[in-house]
Amino acid sequence: MIGVGIKRGTAELAVLSILEEGPLHGYEMARRIEEQTKGALRFTLAALYPMLYRMEQRRWIRGSWETSDTGRRRRRCYRLTPAGKKKLSPLRQEWSELFQALRRLKKVANA
């Protein structure tokens, strides 16, 4: 299980990455992240929405109200903005470098 601190750091990357696939509302976003990470990353409502609002303020994502197919529920769908797309690439790079560094560290530890 991944610790809370690491999770917090990866959360924005996870949200930006999942939104790269297409616009999603909060619940679906959390569900897909949990499914794709096999439960390693799980967003509760309390963790997800303050982060989404923060990312929206930074203009990385944009939310708009949409009505569900059945027409009985209004949901706020988030989509990636050009600024968010621009942010995604360096974020991926940073995390990739971190994981590579940790792998190297493991090799050193095992030597």
């Binding site: 509760t44 409502l45 309390a46 929405y49 303050p50 982060m51 609002y53 923060r54 303020q57 930074r58």
Partner: peptide, 22 residues
């Protein structure tokens, strides 16, 4: 209900996210 353990903390964090950066 287990999605939110501390509603007061959530309120504070939403408030911060939606207003402070604004």
């Amino acid at each position: 209900l287990s999605e939110v353990k501390d509603w007061r903390d959530l309120r504070r964090r939403i408030q911060t996210a939606r207003t402070m950066e604004n």
